[in-house]
Nucleic acid binder design. Structure first.
Length: 610
RNA sequence: GCGGGUGUAGCUCAGUUGGUUAGAGCGCUGGCCUGUCACGCCAGAGGCCGCGGGUUCGAGUCCCGUCACUCGCGCCA
C-alpha cells in the first residue's frame, strides 16, 4: 500500500465498503462521543469521516490530536446505518474505521481557524495565508482562477493566437503609472523597470510579423491599492492583432469574454451582444466610463431648470448653473416611500465625507392636492409648471426621491456617477445573477489638464486618432488648430466593462511615425521625448509597421466577478496589503549593506514630513 | 498626500448618562455522554480595553496626539 494514501478524502463510496483504505489529510473537526471519536479528515478533494473506537491503543493520541494536524489513517471502509448517513457529503454513506493512526505533523494552536465561514481580519489572513487558503471559499476561488486562465488560453489559441513571453526586466514603459525600478549591477547607476504592461513589446511583435499575440502577462505598477486594485502587480490577458479595425478586435474578444463568463457563470446570465456606448454618452447617462448597466436608472442633466432663481427659490444651484456649472439629477425610485429621512441625509453625509464633495442635495416627492411636490429645500419653492417639467423629464413621481449633484461639470458628474451606484446598492436595485457587459468607445484623444492649463493625452498616447472617410489621421491632427478642435478629436480607444468593473482598455494603435510625432506635438512633447521614451517602438515603425490594435482584460478582475468576491485579494494567492507589504514573507525588507554596495546604491533616511 | 470607518479574550462581538470584580458566542483545556457530523451537557483557563498623554475623586466610555488595519479621494491613460 502507498506510504500515505490509497484514496483521497473525497473518493470513498459505498462500493468501497469492506476494503482497506489509507487516507491522509488535515484534522478538520473532531467530535468525541461516549463510545467513539469522530474525525472529519480533509484534503484538497473532500472530507471523509474517520471513526476511532476507545479500545484502540491510539485512542488517546487521536483524541488529543489538535485541529489542522496532518495525519495518516488506515482502516476498513464501513457502510453507515441509514440514519447515520450524511447527505451533505459525497462520502457521507461510508466511514473509515481507524486501525492505524499516525500524526505526520502536529499543529500548534491556530491563529486563524480553518473550519467555518467566519470572517477574519485581513492582517491575520494575510500573515497566515496558507491557513486562509485551506478554507473552502478561498481554496475554491484559487482553483477557479486556474480554470479561468486555462479557458482563456484555450479560447485564444483556438482563434489562432500564439502565446509569447515578453521581458520582465525592461525599460520604463509608457503607461503613465509609477515604475518599479531594479538596479543594474553591471551598469552602475542605471535601472531596469518592471513592465507596467508589455505594451511596446506586443506592438513590436506585430512589427515582427507575428500577427496574433496573446499572453497571460504579469504587470507591475507602483500605485496605491483599492478594493479592486491589488498594489504592485496584477495579470492581464494581453492581446494584440495585426491588420485589424476596432470592429475586428471586438469580434475576436467578445466571444472569448462571453464564452469564459458563460462557462463559469454557474446559473448567472451573460447578456450578448455587448452594447457599445460612446464615452460622451456614458459620462452623461452614468457619470462614469465604467457604467454598471444592471442599475435600472440613469442620470439627467437638469441644469436648465435651476438657472432662474425667481422660479426656483434656490440660490445655490442658480449660482452654480449661471457660473457654467452643472446640476445632475440622480433618481432614487420609490425611495420617498421606502426610506426614512435618514437615508437621504446619510447619502449627503457620504458625499461630504467619502467623496470629499460639497454635498448631495435631495428632494422627496409626495402628492399634495393632486400635484407632485417636495418640501425639501431644492424643490420646495419651485414654480409649479417648472417643477412638473423637471419631474416629467426625469420620469419621477410621488413616492420617488431624487438627489442633485451640483458643481463644475467634471466634479458634478463624478459625484453623480458614484451616487448612482451608491443609491442603487442601498435601495437593493442591482440585480444579482447577471453579467452586463458593454464596450465604451470613442474616447477623446486629448483632455484639458486643469492643473497645468494644457492639453494632454487623455488615455493611451499610442492610440490612432479617428478620421472621417476620405481623411487621414494626419489630416485630422493638422486641421485641429484650436484647443477646442484638439479636444474634439476622438481616438480608436475603447474599454470593456462588466457590471461597473473596468476589465480592460484597448486601442487601435498609431503605427505611423509621422502621425505619432504630430500627436505628441499637440500634447506639448517634442520629437526628442518620443525618441527618448519610446525608442524601441518608434524606430521599429520606420521599417514597415502593420496597422494593429489590441486589448488587455484584467485576469484578476475577471475571476473576481466570477467568484463573486468584494475584494481582489480573495482571488489572489498571496496578496499584499494596502500598504504594498507582504506580511507573510516580510517584504519589502531592508537588505545587507554588501548587496547595496555591489549595486552601487546608498540609502538615505526618509525625508521627514514637514 | 487627504478624508471616513474600525481597534475590548486566540477569533466574532456586546459593554447605557463616566461609577464596584469588563461580559457572551466560537475556539482552547479538563470531565461527562451508545453514532456524532456546526453533536450535546458540566467545569476551567484566558484581558496593558491598540499605544501615549490629558480632564476627573473615578476613564473601555470624554478630550488631544499617535499607530495599525480597512474603505474612499488623489493616483492608476
Amino acid at each position: 500500500m502507498h506510504a500515505f494514501r490509497s484514496h483521497t478524502c473525497g473518493q470513498l463510496r459505498k462500493t468501497d465498503v469492506g476494503e482497506t483504505a489509507k487516507l491522509s489529510g488535515w484534522v478538520h473537526r473532531k467530535r468525541e462521543h461516549a463510545n467513539a471519536l469522530f474525525i472529519d479528515l480533509r484534503d484538497h478533494y473532500g472530507i471523509s469521516q474517520i471513526v476511532v473506537y476507545p479500545n484502540e491503543a491510539f485512542y488517546e493520541s487521536a483524541k488529543r490530536c489538535p485541529s489542522e494536524s496532518v495525519i495518516t489513517v488506515t482502516g476498513e471502509v464501513l457502510a453507515r446505518d441509514a440514519e447515520a448517513v450524511n447527505t451533505e457529503l459525497d462520502t457521507g454513506e461510508v466511514e473509515l474505521r481507524a486501525q492505524t493512526f499516525l500524526i505526520e505533523s502536529q499543529a500548534d494552536p491556530l491563529p486563524l481557524p480553518v473550519f467555518g465561514e467566519q470572517e477574519y481580519p485581513e492582517e491575520i489572513r494575510l500573515k497566515h495565508r496558507y491557513l486562509d487558503l485551506r478554507r473552502e471559499t478561498l481554496h475554491n476561488n484559487i482553483i477557479l482562477r486556474g480554470q479561468v486562465i486555462n479557458s482563456l488560453r484555450s479560447r485564444m489559441i483556438a482563434q489562432g493566437f500564439t502565446e509569447f513571453q515578453t521581458p520582465i526586466l525592461t525599460a520604463s514603459s509608457p503607461e503613465g503609472a509609477r515604475d518599479f525600478l531594479v538596479p543594474s549591477r553591471l551598469n552602475p547607476g542605471k535601472f531596469y523597470a518592471l513592465p507596467q504592461a508589455p505594451q511596446q513589446f506586443k506592438q513590436l511583435l506585430m512589427v515582427a510579423g507575428f500577427d496574433r499575440y496573446f499572453q497571460i502577462a504579469p504587470c507591475f505598477r507602483d500605485e496605491d491599492a483599492r478594493a479592486d486594485r491589488s498594489p504592485g502587480e496584477f495579470y492581464q490577458l494581453d492581446v494584440e492583432m495585426s491588420f485589424v479595425t476596432q470592429e475586428d478586435v471586438f469580434q475576436a474578444i467578445e466571444p472569448v469574454m462571453a464564452g469564459v463568463f458563460e462557462e463559469f457563470a454557474n446559473g448567472r446570465k451573460v447578456e450578448t451582444p455587448f452594447p457599445r456606448i460612446p464615452y460622451k454618452e456614458s459620462m452623461a447617462k452614468y457619470g462614469s466610463d465604467k457604467p454598471d448597466l444592471r442599475i435600472p436608472f440613469e442620470l439627467t442633466d437638469v441644469s436648465e431648470f435651476f438657472t432662474d432663481e425667481s422660479k426656483t427659490g434656490f440660490g445655490i444651484f442658480a449660482k452654480i448653473t449661471n457660473g457654467g456649472g452643472k446640476v445632475i439629477a440622480i433618481p432614487a425610485p420609490g425611495a420617498t416611500d421606502s426610506q426614512s429621512r435618514k437615508f437621504f441625509d446619510s447619502l449627503d453625509k457620504w458625499a461630504k465625507k467619502e467623496m470629499q464633495a460639497p454635498g448631495l442635495g435631495y428632494a422627496r416627492l409626495r402628492k399634495e392636492d393632486g400635484a407632485v411636490v417636495s418640501q425639501d429645500p431644492a424643490l420646495k419653492n419651485f414654480d409649479p409648471e417648472l417643477l412638473k417639467a423637471l419631474l416629467d423629464k426625469m420620469g419621477l413621481g410621488a413616492g420617488d426621491g431624487v438627489f442633485f449633484s451640483a458643481g463644475k461639470k467634471a466634479a458634478a458628474y463624478k459625484l453623480a456617477g458614484a451616487a448612482r451606484n451608491k443609491v442603487a446598492k442601498e435601495l437593493g436595485l442591482i440585480p444579482e445573477g447577471v453579467f452586463k457587459f458593454c464596450w465604451v468607445i470613442d474616447y477623446p484623444m486629448y483632455e484639458w489638464d486643469e492643473d497645468n492649463n494644457t492639453i494632454d493625452f487623455s488615455h493611451n498616447p499610442f492610440s490612432m486618432p479617428q478620421a472621417p472617410e476620405g481623411k487621414s489621421a494626419m489630416d485630422v491632427l493638422l486641421e485641429a488648430d484650436t484647443d477646442e478642435k484638439k479636444l474634439d478629436i476622438l481616438a480608436y480607444q475603447y474599454d470593456i466593462v462588466c457590471n461597473g468593473v473596468e476589465l480592460s482598455s484597448g486601442a487601435i494603435r498609431n503605427h505611423k511615425a509621422d502621425v505619432m510625432y504630430k500627436a505628441f506635438e499637440i500634447a506639448g512633447y517634442g520629437p526628442e521625448v518620443v525618441e527618448d521614451k519610446f525608442a524601441g517602438m518608434i524606430n521599429a515603425f520606420k521599417f514597415g509597421a502593420p496597422p494593429h490594435g489590441g486589448i488587455a482584460p484584467g485576469v484578476d478582475r475577471i475571476v473576481m466577478l466570477l467568484a463573486g468576491t468584494e475584494t481582489i485579494r480573495d482571488v489572489i494567492l498571496f496578496p499584499m496589503n494596502g500598504n504594498a507589504q507582504d506580511l507573510m514573507m516580510n517584504a519589502p525588507a531592508e537588505v545587507d549593506q554588501s548587496a547595496l554596495k555591489e549595486l552601487n546604491i546608498k540609502t538615505v533616511a526618509p525625508i521627514p514630513k514637514d
